[in-house]
């Protein structure tokens, strides 16, 4: 899996590309945690190029969300494809994260 980060309207955005599965999720966890521990209290995780996510990936997102909440910050997600959306609904994740269609919508009012 690949990651790119950029800053838009002074908010950090990390884009995840490929698959978040049992083998790759550890790399994503390290990178996301670095961004949170680095003092970013607002973080957008852009999933436009994420093919699919398994439970290992969901656990990484959940643990990042907890870490961010401890720092009184917020994580927003955007760009979920239909498969990722379905997995979120099956597992109840759509009730845990604020989810937006696009990066611009996630930035709006953040």
């Amino acid at each position: 899996m690949e990651f790119t980060t950029h800053t838009r309207d002074s908010i950090k955005v990390i884009s995840l590309k490929g698959e978040m599965n049992a083998n790759t999720s550890g790399q994503a966890e390290t990178r996301i945690d670095q961004l949170i521990m680095g003092g970013n209290k607002k973080l957008i995780i852009n999933l436009d190029d994420l093919n699919y996510i398994s439970s290992a990936g969901l656990r990484v997102l959940l643990s990042a969300n907890k870490l961010m909440k401890n720092k009184e910050g917020e994580i927003r997600l955007c760009g979920l494809n239909d498969t990722v959306k379905e997995v979120f609904e099956i597992s109840g994740f759509h009730m845990i994260f604020p989810i937006f269609q696009s990066e611009s919508e996630a930035l709006s009012g953040f």
């Binding site: 698959e19 599965n21 049992a22 093919n51 699919y52 996510i53 398994s54 439970s55 290992a56 494809n81 239909d82 498969t83 379905e86 997995v87």
Partner: peptide, 16 residues
């Protein structure tokens, strides 16, 4: 594609 993605998730869950 969506079916391939879903079955890839299943493979990941079973094997992990």
């Amino acid at each position: 594609d969506a079916l391939i993605q879903k079955m890839s998730i299943v493979i990941d869950e079973v094997l992990s």
